[in-house]
Write a protein that binds this DNA or RNA. Structure first.
Lengths: 342, 342
DNA sequence: TTGAAAGCGCTAACAA
DNA sequence: TTGTTAGCGCTTTCAA
């Protein structure tokens, strides 16, 4: 059937095929395929004619068919809790740059830290036969693990650490960040503390580690304000107000689960005429871009999200190149950046 | 339990096929296909057996093959300038929710407001035969238009308006936002102004519209600080410092191209002991979440990004359902939200 | 250097 | 309700 009558009811999905190009160039479809994917295996003249035909028709190869035939989709799927949260999107950006540079496309889904959504997303992604999967977090249901193992493709879990990764993981210890914040606070002379926590289970782990360590070293029990929803400048302001109402002592240090809420504390303190760090000291988490520019600068825990994304991407890319995963657990660490706020 | 794929160079892409499931369930492959996509066309007993076999094997259908056979990929591709910029990612989030609810997956690429990158990204995406494309902006090269028209699929251009969309567009007039800011500023009594601009061509269009209108109504020429890189809190602080050095008069109003830089102006003003809006008034753009919580609250131009994403998604979804595009240009408007900063 | 033949795993008619 | 027969547009042998 050389002629396909166009049916306007369903997407035509690019009418031009390799066979069409071949007809135009006076070669077979196979030669077109070669010209496009392995030009060195084709004579200069043929290559020229094929390329002309491609240009003439605006031909775009059908990667679906290619993937089906070759069992290689050149797709990488990425699952993140949220795309609107800069800590994830900037990691994803770094990841994408590298992976895309190797000729892979990215499929993204948001899982919202919801196990069921993650499972559905994984199934949907796997049906597209990605060549690799990026997951956020290291706690996944058995169904997820099973699907992934079944798929037999490289998987990288990020943003946390575990001894039992599905395949390999790149991240840092959340508990250690809490400990580091507590140690820093004690060393800086603070003896009273509070935590402001919003977000996922990892944020709670940071809070718990901070509270345990600080409590032990200071002999005082840190106050806690927790939010269900995700952190924001507004919730930080509100949290400080709440803490103050509860009679939180001046001179305390507040460990926030994100720079957003930490900035909220800064703003609320300024609005109330409280000095930072004199009356209230603040430690954020994430070291977002604005942290260096607040007044005073925000002391925060830096996760190098660019490095995180890059290491994860390279872990996959190396595997594509045939390397065995030499290191299945990669700790990228973190750094407490001291600025004016604590 | 780190696992290794058999040969990482050639992903196995899920060994189980519909035929395998059929063998297990004692039916043909076609019946499995029916059981999975149109269960009502299969007997209850058969359905049961197929589903058992699926569960047993952890079978994940190959959407690549399905798409190739049916000319329907259930993929929607989305191109945005940047994924780390909340104004885009939040729009994308709203868009995704709806589109995903209809069974479509999203492929995302960043174009960085770079025409060539956009062209490459489009080609890469189209090779995957998406059922629709979302583009940011309305200015595209001829090659892009051609590929898109060639693909013969619904295209929605967002975040701007044009009389000549490729297919349909959903956005607002950037010039009008500049005019609205100027009108507001004049009405509020300001007679001196400045602009702080970073980002893309659309931001410059807002600036130019503001400058023209404000200049005409006030008889004074607004000062301008422009940045090449994207806006940040830090660049806002720096810009105010620069403006002050240039002898910018007190009592002026500053129109910023984003809430980030506007917040920077707020922070810098506070650091210098300048009162807002007394000494310096500020108008942002985007009405991001934090704008309501700064001190004072940030007067800003709100674009309802959720509505934008939703309208765009529904425009596509309606087309999938067979509707002709009744409205090819959709103006979602904007709103100037007055808070304390101006 | 090129071509012919055989699938990749599914959906879409059409029959039974 | 189920099965049969053809492809979808490519890549991959194997021949020429």
């Amino acid at each position: 059937m050389a002629f396909r009558p166009a049916d306007p009811r369903k997407p035509r999905h690019g009418g031009v095929t390799m066979a069409d190009i071949g007809r135009l160039a006076g070669v077979t479809q196979v030669t077109v395929s070669r010209a496009l994917s392995t030009p060195e295996k084709v004579s200069a003249e043929t290559l020229e004619r094929v390329r002309n035909a491609v240009r003439q028709t605006g031909y775009v190869p059908n990667a679906l068919a290619g993937a089906l035939a070759s069992s290689k989709s050149n797709l990488v799927s990425a699952l993140v809790p949220s795309i609107t949260n800069v800590v994830y999107s900037s990691m994803l950006h770094a990841f994408s740059e590298i992976v895309r540079g190797r000729g892979y496309q990215i499929m993204v889904s948001e899982t919202g830290a919801d196990a069921e959504r993650e499972e559905q997303a994984i199934a949907a992604h796997l049906s597209r036969r990605p060549d690799a999967v990026l997951l956020t977090g290291v706690k996944h249901g058995p169904a997820v693990r099973r699907m992934l193992v079944n798929a037999a493709i490289p998987v990288v879990e990020i943003w946390d650490l575990t001894d039992t990764p599905i395949d390999c993981c790149v991240g840092f210890s959340h508990a250690e960040t809490g400990h580091a914040a507590a140690d820093f606070a004690i060393e800086a002379g603070y003896r009273q503390a509070a935590t402001i926590t919003a977000g996922d289970e990892r944020a709670r782990r940071r809070r718990d580690a901070f509270t345990a360590r600080f409590g032990k070293l200071s002999g005082t029990v840190p106050l806690a304000v927790d939010f269900d929803h995700s952190a924001s400048l507004g919730s930080g302001r509100q949290a400080l107000a709440q803490l103050l109402e509860q009679g939180a002592p001046k001179g305390m240090v507040i460990f926030c689960s994100s720079d957003q809420s930490a900035q909220g504390v800064l703003v609320e303190a300024a609005a109330r005429g409280l000095s930072v760090p004199g009356d209230i000291a603040v430690i954020g988490f994430g070291d977002q871009e604005f942290a260096a520019s607040t007044e005073p600068g925000l002391t925060s825990i830096r996760i190098d999200r660019h490095v995180l994304g890059s290491v994860a991407a390279n872990a996959l890319v190396d595997r594509f190149a045939g390397a065995e995963a030499p290191e299945t657990v990669h700790d990228i660490g973190f750094e407490l950046i001291r600025r004016g706020s604590a």
